[in-house]
Amino acid sequence: MFEVPPSPGVDFSGILEKGDIIETTPLGGSAVTAMVTFQDGNKAIFSPAASSLELAVFWVDHLLGFGLVPAVAARPINDQPGLLTQLITGAKPALYYKTWEDAVQPQELLKAAVFDYILDSRDRRKENFLIDEKLQKLWLINNDHHMLLSYLDRRDILDTAIKKGLTNLTPEILTAIDRFYAGSQAFLNRAKEKEMIDVLNRARERARMILDKKTINA
């Protein structure tokens, strides 16, 4: 059911894929159905209806080296296929903040804006990213069909970065985008699902565009 990209080799992915589960607690809600607790105390959210795009987006983040997307892995729970997503403890949706942008580092905001620019994220509302106030860090969630392939036009992070003048790319970010551009072709060659291929092709085009322009201010 899920097209699994090559493993990015992130430790938490290994836990999600093979870690010993000691508890599965049902959750109320339509899209997510259980909270899974691992032997080491880490937790993950189980979504039976999640799309393979979430896996692809996690891989894109890994290739960029931004660390913005919680780990995701395909793993059945109670014989039901689905995706496990790392629970980020200590972080909460941005809508809990009056001015979320004051709670994150500018460099983090710029990285997230670049990420959303490359993927052409379309549903980045305050429900769809988390703030870790202690680490002044962002986490991008719900990177699914609605985010990547809908007709929506909500780009809260990108719009905020532009409004704050955070548009020019640092050498480190340009290196990261270059690494993504070079490395993504191999992944694209192995992808089979049309949605995944479309999203990755578009991401490569947009990465090329900002490598040339060196800014996210279109």
Binding site: S30, A31, V32, D144, H146
Partner: peptide
Amino acid sequence: LKYNFRSGYLSASD
């Protein structure tokens, strides 16, 4: 509502 709140951090029933 279930599409608007779909992460688990905030989630809505059918």
